[in-house]
Design a protein around this nucleic acid. Structure first.
Lengths: 345, 345
DNA sequence: GCGTCACTTGAGAGCGCTCTCTGGAGTCTT
DNA sequence: AAGACTCCAGAGAGCGCTCTCAAGTGACGC
């Protein structure tokens, strides 16, 4: 039974330092209310034994886990083909680390996974959840919201616009889109088309909305639904050119479809930006910088979004830092976007 | 004190089913050795109460956590600009899910994080670790390996070639590079240059090695060190052209640098593939398919790498499925690569 | 018909930790 | 200098679960 070297326990540290378990616990958790010489002795014992608290035992009594679930509900591989989540995870990771919390990643695809994730969250294994779901009809966010776990959403969830306690962090998709289109207008363009994203995603809907805000009387002829992919952008662009050969600008809902649009324009002999100006969205670097010409686009601070999500969640979690103002329920945040001007418009 | 509805415990289920805690526990953990009618009664009670086992309590006694840490040690943002990790995570996630394990993501940058991660792993919060580290001089893998946690590495770690119990999963970088260069040779090219990756990464070293395997007498003139970025590829390409103006092919160590190389070639008026054929590595889709011309490259099955890493780790973990052959220590796996032919070579 | 044995079930200890409660010093007040 | 008070440290009760061990129940063989 004497396995490998088993981990030292609080008991062991206490024995070595010649104090009680309770005292060691106090020191390990901040050392409040323990006199200096003892603190020192305990610290040394911890050091010498290489003591690390057993999180399981701790959670058992505190009911806190210092862990947050990140749920990425994405049936499509597409999303994994862009650095979006990686950046967001990085932001989340940084913030959680700063709060000594762990990041439990739950990747889902398909219905079965919903059940699994629902169980997991409802099982109280984590202190809260950060949920990414891009589709309007995704049942997952609702499920999670119903599970009673503190949650912050990444991107505006399609439902729950009215639901009071839904908290999310999103880019200003609508405002960014307006900026993009206004930029084209400022360039003197008047026949401006729009390649949307899949309209079952709020980001695509919001960007479309922004387009409309500026182009109030653009007819439906000037809008083609794309799917956020280069191929989709390419065929959408062809369609737009067929419908409106004298089109002089295009706002594509993301960089990937913009890159496809560029290809279609080249194929049809249109010069960019001379004949047709193009603006994308995302500022997805490996794409936006590599296209020919490089893409003018709308940048969003993705890492910051992640960081903010974590901050919101953790902030809402701790009534520990009590005495503060009545920690009002956190509310959603919409981050600003900026236009990045390159050669395409 | 009567908080919200507190979670039902084993005790509660036992009471409701009219059996002992032990019996409920047995049923919940598979139901071996419990008579059918009782199993049924317990199942119903679990269902009715919505009982979910408390993982913390369970871990406390079993010393298992059903959780695996994924450590991504990457100081550079570059890596986050490609879908590499996302895909690998996906593979890992799938495999872990199939084993009812959770994925705890640890993102590190800088020395401080090493300490933190080391503590965490040594703290026995997880059953094992999957570690990605691309740099030869990274101390982290050594630390982790020293921490005594079962570990599988993603990519061949730079040290420890001789260390017997280091297990890793890698692509056949060297073989893939050979294929790439042989393809160029097969095309009748003879003056073939190589843009390497940063040579402090094993993948770059191995690819370079593969290049040399085929071009045994290529002089050092034909090799320029790049850094896996488009900009690096671009300047490396210029350098190559300066040194060897009649060069007729280039093998770039990854797609990103290949895309930079294409740009330099275009700028110098070389036609691809007519004047200079180009092969990349990675088959990073948003890049490889978008370049002009689309890139011939070496594909690796990244998701499969992830899946395999998880499988190796979990396989080495469970002596539960005892009675099997003496679960020999898992050994490293090198996955094959394939040449994807597009227009650039 | 009685001992033996396989098979179920329950009782209870204990995983490592936190946290309340209590007692013992020391400090301050008057 | 005595009582009131503050502060610090230890004792001990669990948190919810697993798992060993003992007890109970029949089935079976001789």
């Amino acid at each position: 039974m004497s396995e490998v070297t088993s981990r030292p326990t609080l008991e062991a540290v206490a024995a070595r330092a010649g104090v009680s378990r309770a005292t060691v616990s106090r020191v390990v958790n901040g050392g409040e209310g323990v006199r200096e010489p003892l603190v020192e002795r305990v610290r040394r014992a911890v050091e010498e034994l290489g003591y690390v608290p057993n999180q399981a035992a701790r959670s058992l009594v505190t009911r806190r886990h210092d862990a947050v679930a990140v749920v990425i509900a994405e049936p499509e591989t597409r999303v994994f083909a862009d650095p979006f989540f990686a950046l967001q995870l990085r932001g989340i990771g940084k913030e959680l680390t700063a709060h000594d919390s762990q990041l439990v990643l739950l990747l889902t695809e398909g219905r079965d996974d919903h059940v699994r994730v629902g169980r997991y969250l409802a099982g109280g294994h984590v202190d809260g959840a950060l949920v990414f779901s891009l589709h309007l009809d995704d049942p997952l966010p609702g499920l999670i919201h119903g599970a009673g776990v503190p949650t912050v959403f990444g991107g505006r969830p399609g439902w729950g616009d009215g639901v009071p306690d839904v908290v999310y962090v999103d880019s200003d998709n609508r405002g960014g889109a307006r900026d993009a289109v206004r930029h084209l207008v400022g360039l003197g363009r008047t026949r401006i088309g729009h390649i949307t994203g899949p309209l079952d995603q709020t980001s695509a809907v919001d960007r479309f909305q922004g387009f409309r805000d500026v182009m109030v009387d653009a007819g439906p002829r000037m809008v083609v639904e794309g799917d956020f992919t280069p191929a989709g952008g390419e065929s959408a662009m062809r369609e737009l050119l067929d419908r409106c050969p004298d089109l002089d600008a295009v706002f594509a809902a993301n960089d990937l479809s913009a890159s496809g649009a560029l290809r279609a324009l080249r194929e049809r002999g249109r010069r960019v930006p001379d004949d047709v100006a193009v603006v994308g969205f995302d500022d997805m670097l490996p794409v936006a910088e590599q296209t020919d010409p490089p893409l003018t686009t709308i940048r969003q601070d993705i890492e910051e979004m992640g960081r903010l999500m974590a901050r919101l969640l953790l902030g809402g979690l701790e009534p520990r830092g009590a005495g503060r103002e009545a920690t009002s329920a956190p509310s959603s945040v919409v981050l600003p976007t900026t236009l990045v001007r390159r050669a395409s418009a």
